[in-house]
Amino acid sequence: MVALEVLDPGMMTQLQDTGRTGVGYQGLAQGGPMDLQAYCWANYLLGNRMFCSQLEITGGQARFLAHQAITLALTGADLGARVNGQPVEGWRTLHLNKGDTLSFQFPRKGLRAYLAIPGGFAAPAVFGSVATVVRDGIGGVGARVAKEDSGCLIKQGDSLETVSKEVVKPGINRMVPARYIPEYAGPLSLNLMESYQARAFSAQSRKSLYLTQFTLSPNSDRMGYRLAGAKITPPFSGVISEGIALGAVQIPENGQPIILMRDHQTLGGYPKFGCVAQLDLNRLAQAMPGTPIRFQPISLQAAGQKLKSFYSFFNL
């Protein structure tokens, strides 16, 4: 059943679910929503299970036409969403009638919005997931139509089909309580757990990592977010390639840290100072280039406790 027709995919729109796990040993990236928190809230508002796929709309300028009445949840960045030209608020459920147009303007706060429908969008699961990883040529709705469209972004003319037959939930009118809605503007302080090769870094490098105010480079993508600032001298130019964790902070020879995001490669040979707390990556994924960024130390236990609460709340 076609729910939405893509009139314009905007800057970048992808199908995402919680990610493709368990096949990293074959070199496959996990993918998944860049802002897992906003994604989870969108499924939560509709009473969906967390693996139900959604659209990750990056940078706005997208337009969708409803082919039937449908209930939606919209969270994440404020991309100036409108229904038939009338502004609508995010972090809540919406109802579209057949023929309605949902459009997005330019980003106002944050970069990525999440659009969920009851039961998720239909797409062929590969290794248990429909998450789009462009680099690996895997995931997305395209593969339903043609195999060579596997791993493609959502494009103009795509018909987005529903998994569930019941996509209208007339009784539902929910919103995320204001205290849970994150503030996407302003400087960021990222909690950092020291691990990997942290002990090999000089005291001076360690100190400048915590004292420097970095800025987010425009040369950032779903694989890695690059920071610009004082040069952090790595203790050596490379290490024997080893498994990379989400949020790992790589320090290449130019001394400019790279934070590894959802589409990160499975192995890497750069020295790593540690990992950014996973919950902080959600807010980082919404930051605009030029955003001031600092690091502050956090213990594994403290970061672990916060993550556990998050996983429990959303039943991940």
Partner: peptide, 21 residues
Amino acid sequence: IEVIPSYTTIYIQYHPLKTDF
């Protein structure tokens, strides 16, 4: 969740509610 061997290491990602370090 993941068990990834490479040369001299085995990287393991685990579910935070099912076990701990």
